[in-house]
Amino acid sequence: MGRTAAGDREAFARMFDRHSPAVLGLLVRILGSRSEAEEVLQEVFLQVWRQAGRYEPGRSSPRGWMLVLARSRALDTVRSREARHRREVEVSTDGPPAASSPVGTEGLEERERQEMVSSALGLLPPDQRRCIELAFFEGLTQSQIASRLDAPLGTVKSRIHLGMSKLRQALSS
């Protein structure tokens, strides 16, 4: 990362090759559209190129830092997209796919959906997983989640709390 900050394009290219699949995986998960995700991927890495000097090694891993950037950009994109088109893309990990949206015809393929189930989230009970998905991948706040699921706020908070504890156990094993 330091060399990238110094303007080393080859170092940057190596970083891209190493981390972009993970970043793109997250973007696809959030945006639901491969082509849109690749566009945002470019924006994310442009931002990485410009702001590499801001990265603090103590706070997170380089990949973690990039994933945070990617998530922010993806959620911004989703919000401005929703404001324009007024539709929601819901990616269900439980059963049959949600009705595909008119824009972004690619949607998620069956293979990618199946792979998603095997991620760490799949280890959680459905209630907890749903709450964490809404928070992380759709950027909803606890109150928004409560109203989306028509559940009490306290229930949402405790589900997220328990889910994150379970995730810690699952990821560290």
């Binding site: 891209f16 972009s20 699949p21 997250l26 991927l41 470019q42 973690g64 991620s119 760490a120 990821l171």
Partner: peptide, 28 residues
């Protein structure tokens, strides 16, 4: 934070297309 990043990273990776890579590196 580490948990959240690990969660994000545990998603299935998606390799970007060659077009995307080339365009990015060209437009730096």
């Amino acid at each position: 934070q580490g948990d959240v990043e690990a969660l994000a990273a545990s998603l299935p990776p998606v390799t970007p297309s060659e077009t995307t890579r080339a365009r990015l590196l060209r437009d730096l």
